[in-house]
């Protein structure tokens, strides 16, 4: 490592320049790399779920012990595309004070079940699953778990449910 008369190439200067190359390269890579990696991994970060309370109707409009189906249009955010889905829930009450609201999808494979008025059960047409009206328990067929109940609240005489889908075909109620 030579020393020129002008002192341009001194070992101290070279050591500093080697250090600067390493640090400069490292800092540049971090500055550009961190936002890029964060953005790329962004979908795996936990997002706070937005609560979605659906207005189902006034409490006294539901007949006791006769389940009522409510259809509603749900707005679904698919990244930057907004979609609409037709969804439905079933409401069961005995006293118009306490309500059970079921997600309208069969827990087996997600078909829409319906009310069998003769046998007084919910019946899913796809693979003939049967559910109890009051508890949602499986009475027969392939469904792996009872109907999914939703959180409910009554405000100002109006019934609301918080809509949520759960993973299908598994014995445990896991949010989808």
């Amino acid at each position: 490592m030579g020393m020129t008369p002008g002192g341009l190439v001194s070992s101290g200067r070279r050591a500093f320049l080697k250090w600067a190359t390493g640090v400069g390269g490292f800092v540049s890579a971090l500055l550009a790399g961190i936002p890029a990696v964060r953005a790329f991994l962004s979908p795996t970060f936990r997002h706070r779920r937005q609560e979605k309370w659906i207005r189902l109707g006034e409490v006294d409009q539901f007949d006791p012990e006769v389940p009522t189906k409510v259809d509603f249009v749900d707005t679904v955010a698919d990244a930057w595309v907004e979609g609409r889905r037709l969804r439905n829930v079933w409401i069961y009450t005995e006293d118009n004070e306490n309500f059970t609201v079921y997600n309208g999808r069969c827990t087996h494979l997600g078909c829409n079940y319906s009310l069998d008025t003769d046998k007084k059960v919910f019946r899913c047409p796809c693979h003939t699953g049967f559910f109890d009206l009051k508890t949602g328990a499986v009475l027969g067929g392939p469904p792996p778990r009872p109907l999914d109940t939703l959180a409910v609240k009554v405000e100002g005489g109006v019934l609301y449910a918080e809509y949520q889908d759960y993973r299908l075909g598994v014995p445990d109620k896991i949010t989808a």
Binding site: V9, L17, K18, G25
Partner: peptide, 21 residues
Amino acid sequence: GGVRFWPDILGKDAIVSASAV
């Protein structure tokens, strides 16, 4: 003058490049 590309030139390059970033 005995100046070499590394680190004499590359070091300066890195300083200016990192400043730009």
